[in-house]
Amino acid sequence: AIHQGFQWKEYNLNEVYDFASGLSKGAEEFGFGHGFLGFTDIFKNFFVPKKLTKLVNSTKKEQQSCSIKRGDVFLTRTSETDEDLGMSCVALKDYPNATFNGFTKRLRPKGNIEILPEYAGFYFRSPKFRATVSGMSSITTRASLNNGMLSELKISLPEIDEQKAIAATLNALHKKIDLLKRQNETLEELSSMIFKDLFLNENSANWQDGKINTLFDLLSGFAFKSSDYKESGNYRLVTIKNVQDGYIDLSRTDYLVEMPERMPKYCALELGDILLSLTGNVGRCCLVNEENLLLNQRVAKLKPKNPRDWAFGYALFRQKSIRWQVEELAKGTAQSNLSPVETSEIEIKIPPVPLLEDYARDNTPMFKKILANHKQIKTLTKQRDNLLPKLMSQEATIQI
């Protein structure tokens, strides 16, 4: 198919790429040897990291059959959910002696059709391609992607000069997003170092004995009726799957048109609210960085009794020592469930007020900067993800 005005052509993936499966080995073969592209490397990155940090004891034959070269596209072929299937990562250079994981399909360009790897990196992550993959996956116990399904998927390609122009435009946005994410990681690391220096390495023998509930209230989410869930609406529900370690993931949410009358007011979340997971992978903690979100059950809100302690509370629950106590508390239950009441009874040392005030003065701006960065990341991500479909439908053009 050719889009009028632009020489966009549509191909089945098997016309453009050869498919291959990755390397599967026992756990004892990992941690030494040669470079290895893992599942999470692919899942989290548009492009293969410049340096592969994982290692595997691979043979020369395996390195040949599972090699990584510039232009290779890697798609996750299995996942717990169809939304996470077919996540892509593209190699922008050759990786000598490196191999890729067995839960992944490699798409290697046949060489008969000109495709820029930088363009492919954005195309395979575009909402259009992602929706196509999610829609065709075969759900049994796990979502899966086989060669037959790959052959039915399509890629839209303009002329090479336009691919370069599109890739350059999208990459400019992508680099800004990456810079903000790395800045947030640095700020989180810095805040953790300051927290440990002040509160964990300090001689706290004379500090007051207390509990989490001395400084914070732990408020449970509301049990919304699933019959009220919509595919779109005014409000989005924050459930256990949205609360990740250090960030909130709103890529998959249910919607409500209106708030239930019986819902507590605190369940209407505000920017900066601290959330804690109470089920499954318990103890995950993140900050709310978007508006019009509602707190569902099995997620708790950590509310400081004194607003001064907001930054302290978030940093406290990001510490491994508290996470370990929370996980130990949940082990005694059938499904690793945390009780907000029991969690609030965890014993802690209460720092002197002047120390809490010093921490708030120096670190609250840092966490507010993290929130501001998140907002900018959301805006830039939306611009990046919306641009390619607009170019394909001729709603937007790029001057070459």
Rank of each mutant, 00 (worst) to 15 (best):
T239P: 03
F129G: 08
E29R: 10
N296V: 12
G135D: 03
K241R: 10
L190R: 14
D197W: 04
A27E: 02
K61M: 05
T333H: 04
L338Q: 07
I115V: 14
K51M: 05
I115C: 09
L275P: 12
F100S: 02
K368N: 10
G111F: 00
A98P: 01
R323C: 11
R130E: 08
Q64M: 00
V353E: 11
L387W: 04
T40L: 09
F195S: 01
N203Y: 02
R125L: 10
F30K: 05
F30I: 10
P109V: 05
L293P: 08
M366Q: 11
Y95G: 00
L157R: 07
Q208D: 11
Y95N: 00
T333D: 06
L329V: 09
I248A: 04
L338S: 08
Q4T: 12
S226T: 15
V16G: 00
A172H: 09
T397R: 10
N386P: 08
Y229N: 02
S277C: 10
E261L: 12
A268L: 13
W207N: 08
I160C: 06
K265M: 15
L276M: 14
W324N: 15
E188D: 13
T239A: 13
V90N: 01
L180H: 11
T99F: 00
L75S: 03
G332T: 13
L329R: 00
Q244R: 12
Y247S: 15
M149C: 10
I68G: 01
E188F: 13
P365F: 03
W8Q: 12
D18R: 07
L150F: 00
R323W: 08
R142C: 11
C285K: 06
F47N: 00
E62C: 02
Q297F: 07
T169P: 01
